[in-house]
Computed example of a mutant assay.
Amino acid sequence: MRSPFLSYVATGVLPLIVVFALFLLLRGHDAPGGGFIAGLVTTIAFVLAALAFGAGTVRAALNPLARRMPWIGLLVAAASGLPAVARSQGFLTHYHVPIGADEAPALRLSTTLLFDVGVYLTVVGAAIKVLDAFSAEAPP
């Protein structure tokens, strides 16, 4: 039996959790751990959604994407090291590209952010697979 109170609270809290995970992902792109902790926070959102609305609802919404997400994440993380190899430097040597005026760049894109996005996708995809395995019904 699902709790109507939990469903009501989850409806308000889930968008905040996802925005917080996005903040952690973007804030951590110059520091280690942004992609990993953002992936864990997003996983918490999926667990809350499964508890509030049922695991079947979450499974139906994420199943096709969740199967490929860890592999896509590994591919993105590995691809973030290729610019360095193309410049004859060590694998995963990071590059920053400033976007905006030369005096005060408005935005700095980096291969570190690309690596963190890959880690994020890998963590979320793997956690969804584990949660899916735990929430699967046992055969009769």
Rank of each mutant, 00 (worst) to 15 (best):
residue 2 R to L: 12
residue 8 Y to E: 13
residue 12 G to V: 02
residue 18 V to F: 11
residue 18 V to S: 00
residue 18 V to C: 04
residue 19 V to D: 02
residue 19 V to W: 12
residue 22 L to C: 14
residue 22 L to W: 12
residue 23 F to T: 01
residue 24 L to H: 01
residue 27 R to D: 15
residue 29 H to Q: 14
residue 29 H to G: 03
residue 33 G to D: 01
residue 34 G to I: 02
residue 37 I to S: 09
residue 39 G to A: 02
residue 43 T to Y: 04
residue 44 I to A: 14
residue 45 A to I: 08
residue 45 A to M: 07
residue 49 A to C: 04
residue 50 A to H: 03
residue 51 L to S: 12
residue 57 T to Q: 10
residue 57 T to D: 08
residue 59 R to W: 13
residue 60 A to K: 15
residue 61 A to N: 05
residue 62 L to Y: 10
residue 63 N to S: 15
residue 66 A to L: 09
residue 67 R to G: 13
residue 68 R to V: 12
residue 70 P to Y: 11
residue 75 L to W: 01
residue 81 G to A: 12
residue 82 L to Y: 11
residue 84 A to K: 04
residue 84 A to P: 05
residue 86 A to M: 14
residue 87 R to F: 15
residue 88 S to E: 14
residue 89 Q to S: 11
residue 89 Q to L: 13
residue 90 G to F: 10
residue 93 T to G: 03
residue 93 T to I: 03
residue 94 H to W: 14
residue 96 H to S: 14
residue 96 H to E: 13
residue 98 P to V: 00
residue 99 I to Y: 00
residue 103 E to L: 11
residue 107 L to A: 07
residue 107 L to D: 01
residue 107 L to N: 02
residue 107 L to M: 09
residue 108 R to V: 14
residue 108 R to N: 13
residue 110 S to E: 04
residue 112 T to H: 05
residue 113 L to Y: 01
residue 119 V to N: 11
residue 123 V to T: 06
residue 127 A to Y: 09
residue 129 K to T: 09
residue 129 K to S: 13
residue 131 L to F: 02
residue 133 A to P: 00
residue 133 A to I: 06
residue 135 S to I: 11
residue 137 E to W: 06
